[in-house]
Design a protein around this nucleic acid. Structure first.
Length: 156
DNA sequence: GCCAACGTTGGC
DNA sequence: GCCAACGTTGGC
């Protein structure tokens, strides 16, 4: 059982959007970074929990908790010429990009802002706080995950 | 394999 | 919109 932080731009897809999806589930498509892909492909398992993080917005921070509900499988958008995620170098017989399914797991009653994360000494080593970090998927230590849930008033 | 140029991310 | 930081590309 591992923990993750998943970035999403709320203008494109927010935590509220996820809650409105059928079965509150969404394929996490559009990841086009090898390191992030490798995390999904090699290290994510069904049952893992993730922090849904809003980035590139007025209020960056942790908006919710999700669960991984399907292990890595080919991201179909890489084969769609109409998609912004189209990758003409990727072959159907050897897909370059994968996605997982994420499902709503819990609300974060008190949104945890980036500033709050930065201000908490217990979270000093959180990868997302590292200078220049741009990875859209990063592993999170169990202690950090629990700490952030506590800050957010997540039950259970 | 090096590295400059370029594109993207993401906070501010 | 700015810009620092990083990833990718492509010439050599």
């Amino acid at each position: 059982m591992r923990y993750w932080l998943l970035k999403s731009e709320p203008d494109a897809f927010s935590f509220d959007d996820l809650k409105k999806r059928p079965r509150k589930t969404e394929p996490w498509n559009g990841v086009r970074n090898y390191q992030a892909r490798n995390y999904m492909r090699d290290e994510m398992n069904v049952g893992d929990l993730g922090l849904f993080y809003h980035s590139s917005c007025a209020e960056p921070g942790v908006a919710g908790v999700v669960r991984i509900t399907k292990e890595a499988y080919p991201d179909h958008t890489q084969f769609d010429p109409q998609s912004e995620y189209f990758d003409e170098g990727s072959k159907r017989e050897d897909p370059r990009w994968v996605m997982v399914d994420v499902t709503w797991e819990a609300d974060v009653p008190q949104f945890v802002s980036l500033q709050q994360l930065r201000d908490d000494p217990a979270l000093a080593d959180l990868l997302i706080l590292r200078r220049g970090n741009r990875l859209s998927i990063t592993p999170v230590e169990a202690a950090h995950f629990k700490r952030i849930c506590k800050l957010g008033g997540v039950k259970g």
